[in-house]
C-alpha cells in the first residue's frame, strides 16, 4: 500500500442487501493525498455506491477500504460515523441543507459530530462567515434560513459545510448538476480555490468529461471497477 495514498481500496466488493442484481467490485483504487480526482461513469455504474463505501456508510462485503491509513472494517459502526465526520466533507447533488436550519447552523452541523475538527477551527462561527465570504455568498446570509437560498447559494453553503474545520478529504457527488453552466463554472472556481487553500483531497463525481482539465486526474468507473448486472 502506497504511503501517500489517502484512499486505498483493494478487492473491495459490495452488493446492496436484497438486490442481488447489482454487485460492485473494485480491484484497486488509490488516491494520493492532496490530489483532485474526477470520477466519471454512466448512470447506475455504482459511483455513488463507491463513494458511500469510502465514507463508511456502507461496508465492503470483502476486501479492504482504507481511508487516511485506517481500514474502515476495523472500526465499529459508531466510530466509523465519528471517523467520517472527522475526515470527510460531503456534498450531494442537491438538497444538501436542512431547510429549517439557518445557514450557520447548517455549516456548523458536522462539527457537532467531529470534536477534533471543531478544535481545529478556533472560532467556528467566524470561520463559517469567512468561508461564506470566500465562496462569494452575500454578506449577512449567515442567519437566513437555508430554504430561502437559491440552489447555487445552497451548493456553496454545502461547500462551506464540507470544508469547515479543514477535513483532509472532500467528496462531492455531482455537486454541479443542478446548476446552469455559468453558475457551474463559478462554483467550481470557488470550490477549487478553497480545496487548494486547505490542501484537501477531492473526489468529485460528474457526468461531464469536459471538466477533466480542472482535475489532477480523471478516472472512469469502467477502469477501476467491474459491475455484475445479472438477474440472479
Amino acid at each position: 500500500m502506497s504511503k501517500d495514498s489517502i484512499i486505498d481500496l483493494k478487492d473491495a466488493r459490495f452488493r446492496w442487501p436484497g438486490r442481488a442484481s447489482f454487485a460492485l467490485s473494485v480491484p484497486e483504487f488509490l488516491v494520493e493525498k492532496g490530489q483532485s480526482v474526477l470520477l466519471l461513469g454512466e448512470s447506475g455504474s455504482g459511483k455513488s455506491t463507491l463513494l458511500s463505501m469510502i465514507c463508511g456508510t456502507i461496508l465492503a462485503d470483502s476486501g479492504s477500504v482504507s481511508v487516511n491509513g485506517t481500514d474502515l472494517k476495523t472500526l465499529s459502526g459508531w466510530s466509523r460515523d465519528r471517523f467520517r465526520a472527522e475526515q470527510i466533507g460531503v456534498i450531494f447533488q442537491q438538497f444538501n441543507l436542512l431547510p429549517f436550519g439557518s445557514v450557520t447552523d447548517n455549516i456548523l452541523l458536522p462539527l457537532k459530530f467531529a470534536p477534533s475538527r471543531r478544535k481545529r477551527c478556533h472560532n467556528p462561527s467566524r470561520q463559517a462567515a469567512e468561508l461564506c465570504q470566500a465562496l462569494g455568498l452575500p454578506e449577512g446570509i449567515a442567519s437566513s434560513k437555508a430554504a430561502n437560498l437559491s440552489v447555487g447559494q445552497q451548493q456553496r453553503v454545502a461547500v462551506a459545510r464540507a470544508l469547515i474545520g479543514a477535513p483532509p478529504i472532500l467528496i462531492a457527488d455531482e455537486p454541479t448538476s443542478s446548476l446552469d453552466e455559468l453558475a457551474q463554472s463559478n462554483f467550481l472556481d470557488l470550490m477549487f480555490h478553497q480545496v487548494a487553500a486547505q490542501e484537501t483531497t477531492l473526489i468529485m463525481v460528474s457526468h461531464d468529461p469536459r471538466l477533466a482539465d480542472r482535475f489532477d486526474r480523471t478516472v472512469h468507473m469502467n477502469d477501476i471497477a467491474t459491475i455484475q448486472r445479472q438477474a440472479s
Binding site: 465514507c55 456508510t57 460515523d81 467520517r84 460531503v90 450531494f92 438538497f95 458536522p110 459530530f113
Partner: peptide
C-alpha cells in the same frame, strides 16, 4: 441522510 453524511450515527 444529511445527518448521516455529517457523521451522525443511526443511534443519533
Amino acid at each position: 441522510a444529511i445527518f448521516r453524511a455529517m457523521g451522525a450515527s443511526p443511534i443519533a
